[in-house]
Design a protein around this nucleic acid. Sequence first.
DNA 1: GTACAGATTGAG
DNA 2: TCAATCTGTACT
Length: 208
Amino acid sequence: MARKLIRGFYVRDTLTVAQELLGKFIVRRIGGKLRTGMIVETEAYVGPQDRASHAYNGKITSRNKAEYMIGGHIYIYLVYGINWQLNISMGLAGAPECVLIRALQPMINNWRPSFRARQKNSLPKGRIPLKNLANGPGKLCRWLRVNKSFYGEDLTKSKRIWLEDRGVKIKKREIVSSPRIGIDYAGPVWAKKPWRFYIKNNPFVSRI
DNA sequence: GTACAGATTGAG
DNA sequence: TCAATCTGTACT
């Protein structure tokens, strides 16, 4: 039933994969337990021509070099000093393309974090509505407990994080595309590209 | 060495 | 509406 996504899935056209990632599952092993969420929102970044991409104009730095890896590797970085952003490299080695995972639908019915969990994740006290657990790129990284230590991780080989196809099919007409979030600096042409994708009417997307 | 802004978030 | 918070990057 559940099939782990293999290299071939990621080594394809980035805009296509960004849409096909909707309905796929991220599985994260923490200790002996699995934490799973269905991807409901993504954004595509297609360097080097994309002004919104960290790899615009072919720029390579120690921060963004994971973007150039062959599809299926994690490109993760910190924004605003606090929030990690989980990206997956796409395409062939040397192609600076990636997909940002913006929101997950957590695969749990209810969740009241333990004191220990709150400490480790800097989570607020009390019950956290499922809806607000992973409905944003920074929040889902906190929930999955991923950070710089996952930089360059191979999703097809890792024992602590990978992606699965569980047979959920998202139809074309269920996919909404819109401009990407927070990239006005890229100028009107690139900021307007409808490269943000999310599942229509899904309550777990970061915003409408 | 220093300055500056950001693929966000949560509080007010 | 705005501050938090820190790293990468550019420039002196």
